[in-house]
């Protein structure tokens, strides 16, 4: 029908259920979520706490597996995978940006960005080049040997973004990326995510702030473990050139 259906579906969730056992009680965090996300979409997942958005993010990020339902990411069926294969998928296909940055405090910036490459088995010489390129993209090329505690929050989040995109993943998954930042720095970071999207990346945001979600082109709202609404804005900002 519209432009997005012609595009390649990169993430496909079908009837995802996730329940937790809390003592004798069963908690239904997700009750049958189905969702398609296409390449180069810019999606925000919203919802009040307890709505299941963190659970959904964990499942999308392959940090957790659904109790039932199918999930395929870039053509790979996630539900059938064992732990090592999941680690491999996280490594190759997903770039995480966390609220608390989650950098290794003892490692310098360069090493932090090299880390996914190390676990991906990229040879040493190539590693440094790729990591420097990624850091250049976020404007931190002159800080390679600094440690996270020598940087501001905004700079840390930029390092995290560099780390997320260094292996050119299928999706960038940002969980409250501005939650620990002041609004000006937050805007910078969002601008950076906007740029990534404009460069062709698929970006998924998890947030509870409307003005952050406003950056996305599509907004999903969750309530009580189900999708309450799924709104795609008009396509004015997506140039035809990227749709090709």
């Amino acid at each position: 029908m519209d432009a997005s259906s012609e595009k390649e579906v990169v993430l496909k969730l079908r009837n995802i259920v996730r329940t937790y056992e809390m003592g004798s009680e069963l908690i239904h965090a997700l009750c049958g979520v189905s969702l398609d996300i296409c390449r180069n979409e810019y999606v925000a997942i919203m919802g009040p706490s307890g709505s299941g958005k963190s659970t959904l993010m964990n499942i999308i990020g392959c940090l957790d597996i659904p109790t039932s339902g199918d999930y395929s990411l870039a053509g790979e069926m996630v539900a059938d995978k064992n732990e090592s294969e999941l680690a491999d998928i996280r490594n190759r296909l997903i770039g995480f940006v966390f609220q608390t940055f989650n950098l290794l405090p003892r490692a310098n910036i360069l090493h932090n960005v090299e880390l996914p490459l190390i676990y991906g088995g990229v040879p040493k010489a190539e590693r440094r080049d790729l990591a420097e390129q990624a850091l250049e993209r976020v404007g931190l090329k002159d800080r390679l040997t600094h440690r996270p505690n020598e940087l501001s929050g905004g700079q840390c989040q930029r390092v995290a973004i560099a780390r997320a995109l260094v292996l050119n993943p299928s999706i960038i998954l940002a969980d409250e990326p501005t939650g620990n930042l002041d609004s000006k720095t937050g805007n910078d970071i969002m601008g950076m995510l906007d740029d990534l999207h404009a460069d062709g990346q698929t970006v998924i945001l998890v947030t509870h702030e409307d003005d952050i979600a406003a950056h996305a082109k599509r907004v999903l709202r969750l309530r009580d473990g189900e999708i309450e609404s799924d709104v795609t804005k008009d396509e004015r900002s997506i140039p035809d050139a990227i749709a090709v």
Partner: peptide, 14 residues
């Protein structure tokens, strides 16, 4: 936490 970070970005159990 470090283990969590490493695992999230692709470290295996091994």
């Amino acid at each position: 936490r470090e283990i969590g970070i490493r695992k999230a970005i692709g470290a295996r159990r091994r």
